[in-house]
Write a protein that binds this DNA or RNA. Sequence first.
RNA 1: CGGGGCGUAGCGCAGUCCGGUUAGCGUACCUGGUUUGGGACCAGGGGGUCGCAGGUUCGAAUCCUGCCGCCCCGACCA
Length: 489
Amino acid sequence: MAKEITSREENYSQWYNDIVKKAGLADSSAVRGCMVIKPYGYAIWEKMRDQLDKMFKETGHVNAYFPLFVPKSLFEAEEKNAEGFAKECAIVTHYRLKADPDNKGKLIVDPEAKLEEELIVRPTSEAIIWNTYRDWIQSYRDLPILINQWANVVRWEMRTRPFLRTAEFLWQEGHTAHSTKSEAIAEARLIHDVYARFAEEWMAMPVIKGFKSENERFAGADDTFTIEALMQDGKALQAGTSHFLGQNFAKAFNVTFSNDKNENEYVWATSWGVSTRLIGGLIMTHSDDEGLVLPPKLAPFQVVIVPIPKPDPELLEKAKNISEALKALGISVKIDTDETKRPGFKFAEYEMMGVPVRLGLGKRDLENNTIEVARRDTKEKTSIAMDQVVPYVSSLLDDIQENLFQRAKAYRDSHITKVDSYDQFKDVLENKGGFLSCHWDGTSETEEKIKEETKATIRCIPLDAPSESGKCIYSGKISERRVIFAKAY
RNA sequence: CGGGGCGUAGCGCAGUCCGGUUAGCGUACCUGGUUUGGGACCAGGGGGUCGCAGGUUCGAAUCCUGCCGCCCCGACCA
C-alpha cells in the first residue's frame, strides 16, 4: 500500500520520518536543516502553545517580543553562554545584494554593504534581553520581571531531524529577573513543575524531574532543571529545561538594583524553554506502526465522523446533530464530507493522523439507532446506542488520555533499571536501553569517560532520589544517591 | 566532516552494468460508468529540463569529469 509506514522494529528512524511525513505534520524544505511545519502539525503546536501560554499567565507571566538579531558584542558578553553556542551560530555580515556584473540575472552579496558589527541570529535571547533589562531595572520595586516570549531561534546543527532537531525551531523562552536568589530558584522550580505537569497531563508523556550535572548544564546557568522523557526505542529525550542563572547575566550586563536598604545588588535571573521538539516527543511516546497516536488534549480534532458509505443529506444531518452536541461539551469534531474516498480509505487516513475517536455512521446505524465508535489508542470498535454517544465519547476521550499516559508510564517504569556495576551498566544499555539508575561519584571526569565508552550521558539527578550510600559504578568511589544515565536524542 | 546509499511524472520505483526509435511500471491526478460497513473496479486521458554543468559519440537516463542536493550510520547538539 502506498500509505504504509515502516515498522518500528524494521527501522525506528524511518518509522519516525514516515509518521512525520504521512500524518501531514511537516515537510523538508529547500533550506538545509529547516522544515516546513504543515497545518496539521502546526495545529498541534498551537494546542501546546495555547495551553502553556495559559499556564504561564496563571503563574504571573506576561509576553513580550525581542529582536531576532543580537549584535556580536552583546552576544559575547556572558562568556560561558557565548562559548556554548559559538559553534552553531548563523551570522549576518551584510545587508544588501546587487546584480552580478559577470552573471546576468544573478545576485551577489554587495561587498560595499558590510555591516560594521556582525549580527548573530539568536540561538537564545539572554544577551539581548539582559542588555534591555539593565535599562528597565533600578529599584527592587521594578522586580520581579516575569517575561516570556514566543519566538523562533536558529542553531546551526550538523545533523537535523524533523521536530527533534532542526536548524530553526519555534519555542518559548521565559526570562525572569528577581531581587533574591531564593526567589529566582523558586521561579526556576515553579516553571519546572509547569513543564512536568504539561508533559504528563497534556502530552500524556511521563517525565523524570531532576537537575543537570555540570557537563550537561545550560551554558551560563548555575543550575539547570530538566524534564526527561523516554522514547519507545529506549532513548531519552530532554523535553524542557528551566535554568537558575544566578547573577551571571546580571554581572555580564551590569544589571543592578537598589534594595530596600538602598544598597546596590546584582539581579538574580532565570530562563526556561520548551520547543517544537515536544512534537517529536509526542510522536515517539505514543505512536504505533499504523501511524500517529495523539492524546485527546492535543489533537487538532478529537473526533471525526465518517458517513458510511458516503455523505448523504440524511447522514450529514445526523452527523451534524452529534457534532453540535459534542461541541457543546467543548469537544472538537470534524465531519468528513469528502465524497470521493471510500470509508476504508478514510479509516486508514484518520488512523495515520492519530485522531483519538472515530465515529462511523451508516444506514445500518440509522435503522438500528446505533453508531460505531472506534478508539485510536487500542483500535477497539464498539457499536453503541445513538442516544448514548455524546456522554460515551466524552468519557472515552478522558479514558484515552489516561490510558495513553498509563501505557507510556508502564513502559517508562519498566525501563528504569537499577544497575550496580559497570559491566551490568553496559549490558543493560546495549540490550535493553532506557534509563539506568546508578551511583556516580559526582565528577565530570567519570561522566566524560562513561560517555566516551558507552555514549550514555547523565540525563538528570532526580529531585526525588532518596539518599542512598553506594559506590560509583565506574570509579568505585562513594556516592550518596543514584543518578539517571541514558543514551539521548 | 568520515562511512554507506540515492537522485528518472506529485509519491514509490524499473531501466544505467552491456549507449540505439515516441523512456516505462505502480500509485496519485482528470473524465465517464459500475460500486460503496476497513485502503474499490473497468475504460479512456493528462503529466518528464531522466539532479546541474561540461565532455566522449552519428546517437547519452545509460560512458567520463566536475558540481549540487537528499537519506541512513557516526562525530556535535535541545
